[in-house]
């Protein structure tokens, strides 16, 4: 267990945490304001990545691909909202889960039909290519650093939007007491559209940013979706602040756990057993963390309203 490895894995953990935050933020906003549980949020992340790849194949520029990807992801999200989701706002959570599960089945398959089942990739832009030395002999890819920085930037922007603007105020009020917002005579439909579109863009942005470092393939959003669920459950549903903190914790615990669990297990167990137990333990770690948090705080770290 070297310090260099520890530093690299900490950065990787932060990077996973940032991606998780971008996905969880949209999920928790949409749930908080609209009481709508959207399983299809993960496929919107996937769509962002695929649309950016398509944009790149068309233009040959990462930056244009980013813009095209974001715009098209937003468009797809709004189409979905128009066709399916808005019919579900009044339904119970079971219906919402099932219908958005149907959307997942459809879109994962559609992506397979259009782009094939083989993984695709999006090259990082020249500007952010290469690696820079951090400390003594540690090199770290610039693009990954840029991802962390841009994610933190989005988080800051989100913070300002939620705390300083009128829509943000409504979002906070809606998460605490949805009936009150409706009673204030706010155009709920429009507020929903804005929040939903914004959440979609965040997920799409996460997908695009992840595309150069993770493989772009059908179903890529599913696993992150479930991690994002863990994040918002730990953070407290509806809380952006909770989502941010929990995303970083989950990202770090998961990444560091996977790199070091076997080594740590070797301290207590014979090497052969440790090689078996380590990875199994590592994959359970974040769920154990979630269980522990819920045991003491059933509504998460930053409860917005009771569950």
């Amino acid at each position: 267990m070297s310090t260099t490895l520890l530093a690299v894995q900490t950065l990787n953990g932060l990077q996973l945490g940032i991606l998780l935050f971008l996905i969880a933020a949209g999920l928790t906003l949409v749930f908080g304001v609209m009481d709508f549980i959207n399983l299809a949020h993960g496929v919107q992340y996937m769509l962002g990545a695929y649309l950016a790849v398509a944009g790149y194949q068309l233009t040959g520029s990462f930056w244009l691909a980013l813009i095209i990807g974001l715009a098209l992801a937003l468009f797809c999200g709004l189409v979905l909202e128009f066709l399916v989701f808005r019919r579900l706002y009044d339904r119970d959570h079971l219906d919402q889960v099932l219908a958005t599960f149907g959307v997942i089945l459809f879109l994962n398959e559609a992506v397979k039909v259009i782009w094939g089942a083989a993984p695709l990739s999006l090259p990082a832009p020249n500007l952010l290519d290469g690696a820079i030395p951090l400390v003594n002999n540690l090199q770290y890819p610039v693009y990954r650093l840029a991802l962390i920085v841009s994610g933190l930037g989005v988080a800051a922007l989100l913070y300002v939007l939620v705390t300083r603007t009128r829509v943000g105020m409504l979002v906070r009020a809606g998460a605490t007491n949805p009936d009150m917002v409706a009673a204030l005579g706010v155009n709920i439909r429009r507020l929903f559209m804005i929040v939903f579109g914004f959440g979609t863009m965040l997920a799409g942005f996460a997908g695009i940013m992840a595309a150069p470092i993770l493989s772009v393939e059908p179903g890529m959003g599913d696993n992150l979706l479930i991690l994002a669920f863990v994040v918002i459950v730990v953070g407290g549903i509806g809380s952006i602040r909770g989502a941010f903190l929990a995303a970083l914790i989950i990202g770090l615990v998961d990444t560091l756990g996977r790199s070091f669990a076997t080594d740590i297990a070797k301290l207590a167990l014979p090497p052969a057993a440790a090689n078996d137990v380590g990875p199994a333990l590592a994959s359970m770690l974040i769920y154990i963390l979630m269980a522990a948090v819920l045991f003491f705080r059933p509504s998460g770290l930053f409860p917005v309203r009771s569950a």
Binding site: F31, I37, H93, V97, N223, I226, F229, V230, I232, V233, I237, S283, M284, Y287, M290, A291, L294, F295, P298, S299, A307
Partner: peptide, 20 residues
């Protein structure tokens, strides 16, 4: 653990444990 919560929390937590 899951039954200490309700509704959407319960859905997400059972999903997470399944994934575990």
């Amino acid at each position: 653990i899951s039954l200490r919560t309700r509704g959407v929390y319960f859905i997400m937590i059972t999903l997470a444990f399944g994934q575990m």
